[in-house]
Each structure stands twice: as C-alpha cells, then as structure tokens.
C-alpha cells in the first residue's frame, strides 16, 4: 500500500524515462540513417536503394563507423530501459493487459478520427501493441545484428535466421518495422502536442491508478 502511494505521486514520465527516450530517439535515427548507407553498399532487395539524402555517412566505411557507435548507445540505453521498466513495474503496468475488445474499440475510434488522448496516463490498446511491437523489433534487431556482425562466433544464430542473407533480411525488416513505428509515433505526437511536451517536462503528476473495474465504469 505504501509502495502504491509513492508510485501514485510519480510524474507521468519520470526523468530516467525521458533521458532514455531521447537517447533512444537519437540512437535509432543514427542507426537507421547509417543502416541505409550500409544497405546501399550491397542491396538486399534488387532495385530497392536509398537516396544519398537519407544516408548517414558519405560512403560505406563512414556509415559503418556511425552504425557501430550508435549500436553501443542503443544497447546500453535499451538494456537500462528494460531493467528500469521491469524493476519499477512500468512496463507491465503500462503495457498490460491488452484485451481484444479494447483493440476493436480503439481501432474503431481511430478510424473515426476520435483520438482519445484526454488522459495521457493510460495507453489505449493499439498504443500498447505498437510499443510492444517496437520493443520486440528492437530485440530482434539486436539478435539479427549480432548474427551479421559475428557470423562465425554466433554461427548458431545465422543458421536460425536462414543463413547470412536471411539475417540481413531480418535486420532490414526489423528496421522497416521500427521506421514505421517511428513515423506513426511522431505523427501522433505532433497531432497531440501535449504528449510531446510531457516527454520533455515530465507531464502531469499521476493520479493513483484506478482498478480496472472502476475504469470500466468511468467510461
């Protein structure tokens, strides 16, 4: 009970979350931009090629230097986030549970352009799924990235991913998923600017979490 009371006084986005969020944003943009440069050095899908304007690094070696620098940033930050999220219960509290009926309701609302963001402290079902997909894609990027970087030391991973080109394809697909997430995430944040402000300043002080039944009744 005492624990709950402390938690209830927390801001929506405590400072560690904000630092990790923006660190992650920088790491992801650098990884995607430099990844495009690395991809272009030998395309995976013939005919699919990134213009120079979105590549980070003037040629492959520079893109690789950026990629392997941002890699450490992402791994350290992502690891810290997972540890923090699990330790404080934030991940479970904010991302679970996901009920099928909620998903249907949220998709219906979204299609009618009813973007309910009155209450920033709870995520709707689609948001929850998006965040979980992004976290899983991030983990998949680390695993496939490790297979591409060290295909001999981790030859088991390469076999699991269907060979070296298979690992590259998985890494590329994971990037596409994350880039898609990033696009939706940024568009939605700009549509509801309060969310952006909250991620910069910490947002409102959170009310004590209502039990699920009470929330249901409040609808």
């Amino acid at each position: 009970m005492k624990m709950n009371a402390i938690r209830s006084r927390r801001r929506l986005h405590p400072w560690p979350v904000r630092i990790m969020h923006w660190t992650n944003a920088v790491a992801m943009v650098v990884l995607i931009g430099s990844g495009c440069g690395i991809y272009d050095d030998s395309v995976i899908i013939h005919g699919v090629y990134f213009p120079k304007a979105i590549r980070l690094g003037s040629w492959a070696a520079e893109s690789l230097l950026w990629h392997f620098a941002a890699m450490w940033l992402l791994v350290a930050n992502g690891g810290a986030y997972l540890v923090y999220g699990v330790a404080t219960g934030r991940l479970r509290e904010r991302l679970l549970p996901i009920r099928p009926s909620d998903i249907v309701q949220t998709v219906r609302d979204t299609l009618r352009l009813k973007l309910a963001h009155e209450d920033l402290t709870t995520y709707n079902a689609v948001q929850k799924i998006l965040y979980i997909v992004a976290i899983l894609a991030g983990i998949s990027q680390v695993v496939s990235g490790l297979a591409i970087w060290k295909p001999v030391q981790f030859s088991g991973l390469v076999a699991l991913l269907g060979g070296f080109q298979g690992a590259r394809l998985v890494h590329f697909a994971g990037m596409a998923v994350l880039a898609g997430f990033l696009a939706i995430h940024v568009v939605l944040a700009l549509l509801v600017p309060r969310t952006l402000w909250a991620m910069l300043t910490g947002g409102p002080v959170r009310q004590p979490a209502l039990p699920a039944v009470a929330r249901e009744a409040a609808r």
């Binding site: 943009v29 650098v30 995607i32 931009g33 304007a53 979105i54 590549r55 980070l56 690094g57 003037s58 040629w59 070696a61 520079e62 950026w66 990033l182 696009a183 940024v186 568009v187 700009l190 549509l191």
Partner: peptide
Amino acid sequence: RAIRCARGVVLLTLALAGPAQAQTA
C-alpha cells in the same frame, strides 16, 4: 501537420548526416 512532421524527421536526419558528409575519405 503530417507533412510538417515528416519534413522534421528528414531535416533531423539531414542535420545528423551533414557533418558526416563533410568528412571525406
């Protein structure tokens, strides 16, 4: 708004890509 945001992402990428392009090997 969406276009503005997309442009923001591109500009951010460009800003990060800028210094790299200045280094030429």
